[in-house]
Design a protein around this nucleic acid. Sequence first.
DNA 1: ATAATGTAAATGCACTTGCATCTATATGGC
DNA 2: GCCATATAGATGCAAGTGCATTTACATTAT
Lengths: 143, 143
Amino acid sequence: MIAPSAETTSAWTALIRAARQRLDAVESALKQAGLPPLAWYDALWEIEQAGAGGLRPFELTERLLLPQYGTSRLLNRMARDGLIERTRSAEDGRGQVIRLKSAGQAVRARMWPVYAAALHDGLQDRLTSDEAATLAGLLNKLA
Amino acid sequence: MIAPSAETTSAWTALIRAARQRLDAVESALKQAGLPPLAWYDALWEIEQAGAGGLRPFELTERLLLPQYGTSRLLNRMARDGLIERTRSAEDGRGQVIRLKSAGQAVRARMWPVYAAALHDGLQDRLTSDEAATLAGLLNKLA
DNA sequence: ATAATGTAAATGCACTTGCATCTATATGGC
DNA sequence: GCCATATAGATGCAAGTGCATTTACATTAT
């Protein structure tokens, strides 16, 4: 049987702990501020980047690495809150096109400072630039 | 407003992506093998370490960084599956003592090779020893 | 001893997630 | 055109999670 080395094990536990703590910090800062969860930010961001042409749900699924039903339901909730607009696709009768509404843009804009502050406190305050770059490089080897 | 640097941002995205992918890989290997989720492993491990003296639920809550109700329900499911034994605490009438049953030890033992293999493939194969050590060091600054 | 406050653990309720499946449209082969 | 198969997206159901609250016992102060 394959036994992971001590270095592997400590990298693993550090990875899980760090990711969980930082993520929890961001999520709770958002919740604290009465804002939606982080996943909404990512989705709103992608939709915003797509601009006037909009975006298809399956594209969002790919970009956010969500399960298909996860995207469907996330879009449901965002639509229910009036943040996005769903229209039937002209080219593909099975699908839709998602576009950002101004309320969605506004919510994303309100989320950003909270998100940024959490990243600042959680990462920027704790690592030098070089360390952050090294860390990113090593983590990208795991993806 | 505080804007995170480019290095911070890329460390952040790399952190989230790497953690999610590695974690998903472990979880799906376990599920694939018909075994319970990773959280069970951690819990079973802690309970096993506690030995014959057992462990109090609130201690597990602290060690696993779970919400209190999360522990309560996790223990419920493990007890329902006959993996642990819950007895009322002799010293504290409010509480219980958790002890591992042999079925619990067996499940943890079956989980380990699957878990270890996923760590091997996900981490050990992708990082040198030195890199893993550096990574762990950097990640620990974030905790 | 009594009352007030604190801590251990469980739970009702609303919401989210995972899984499997379903409906509708699209596409390729014949 | 017609059928088989593939893809977009939604959804019923079971299970898990978060929040707030509850129950029970413990501890401290009076």
